[in-house]
């Protein structure tokens, strides 16, 4: 008989708490919707800009939605690309292979470097990390001339190495990954070692899965920086066959004396440039979001 008496106030309190939570949730969802509208704005803009006919491209104030969407820009872009000396597919092939290879190289090399920095004591590890922190602060623009010298002395001009190697040693990747690996408890690694796992196994089977969010983030960032990179094509590639798609696009639009001409093609090209980024983002982001919750850390 006593049971319902006790249970009743308890249930009441639980319900009120539930109600409060849902109200809080409503506020949260409202705010998030509001902010995410801003977040999506550039995306909507890029897509619409590519479909705007010429008279809308230069409207001031600029509009976000295209009023009379047309494929005119794409037709123009297609015509321009079809009469280039090197077939445009060659540029796209170069770009794609460079981007994919540098994503693999950057994430692999950064993770390989970050793991011992975080979990092993070896002579000079503090020094290495301090150097990484310092070089984080340099903008990549500062070192383009000496880099040119290095690339020319290594003899990797006009090769894919010239595209990839200068991009590999990025301090940001190592920095981010080290911070993630710092969060892995030593006991986890130690128990794997006790079970007889070799160092490389510990790295591949435990460290990499746990820091997958960081790996995926670096993957996304390095993909888009490699994909959009015109610097290596300008500086290190004299052979037209070895240049990349973004470089080709930039020559289409910047060499024109008249700034108005080809703006439509530029808008269409911007969309083309953006779509691989979006695809890579969509592929990797689920890995990013599936965070450390299920990774066995805590």
């Amino acid at each position: 008989m006593a049971m319902p008496l006790i249970r009743k106030p308890f249930r009441f309190r639980r319900r009120s708490k539930l109600f409060r939570m849902s109200r809080f949730e409503k506020v949260v969802v409202f705010l998030l919707v509001l902010f995410s509208a801003f977040m999506l704005l550039p995306l909507v803009y890029i897509f619409n800009h590519a479909f705007k006919p010429y008279e809308e491209l230069f409207v001031y104030p600029p509009t976000i939605w295209a009023r009379n969407p047309s494929f005119q820009n794409f037709v123009e872009l297609f015509q321009m690309t079809s009469d280039s000396v090197v077939p445009v597919t060659r540029y796209i092939f170069n770009s794609l292979s460079v981007a994919v290879l540098s994503v693999i190289a950057v994430t692999g090399v950064s993770a390989l470097c970050a793991y011992p920095l975080s979990k092993h004591k070896f002579p000079g590890d503090k020094l290495v990390f301090a150097t990484i922190m310092l070089t984080l602060l340099f903008a990549p623009e500062t070192v383009s001339i000496p880099r040119y010298l290095v690339v020319s002395h290594l003899g990797i001009m006009n090769t894919y190495w010239g595209h990839i190697l200068p991009m590999v040693a990025v301090p940001v990747g190592v920095f981010l990954m080290k911070q993630f690996i710092d969060q892995i408890p030593n006991e986890l690694l130690e128990s794997a070692r006790l079970d007889g796992a070799r160092e490389i196994m510990v790295f591949l089977r435990i460290v990499v899965p746990v820091i997958l969010p960081a790996v995926a983030t670096i993957g996304i960032i390095s993909f888009q920086s490699a994909w959009g990179n015109t610097e290596t094509s300008t500086l290190f590639m004299q052979d037209e066959q070895m240049k990349t798609f973004p470089f080709f696009i930039s020559t289409l639009t910047t060499n024109m004396a008249n700034n108005v001409a080809r703006q439509g093609a530029a808008a269409a090209a911007a969309l083309f440039m953006f779509i691989p980024n979006l695809i890579i983002f969509l592929v990797f982001q689920s890995k990013v979001i599936a965070t450390m919750a299920h990774s066995g850390i805590k």
Binding site: V109, S110, L112, C113, Y115, P116, L117, H120, K121, F122, D125, V128, T131, T135, F138, T142, V143, I145, P146, R147, L149, V150, L154, L165, P166, V168, A169, P171, V174, E199, F203
Partner: peptide
């Protein structure tokens, strides 16, 4: 020294493409 071996690829790239250019600048 295992740590150093794992770090080596990055260090080489780093010396060539980051620290040498910086010192040169």
């Amino acid at each position: 020294y295992e740590g150093i071996f794992l770090i080596l690829p990055w260090i080489i790239g780093f010396l060539l493409f980051v620290s040498f250019p910086l010192l040169y600048s």
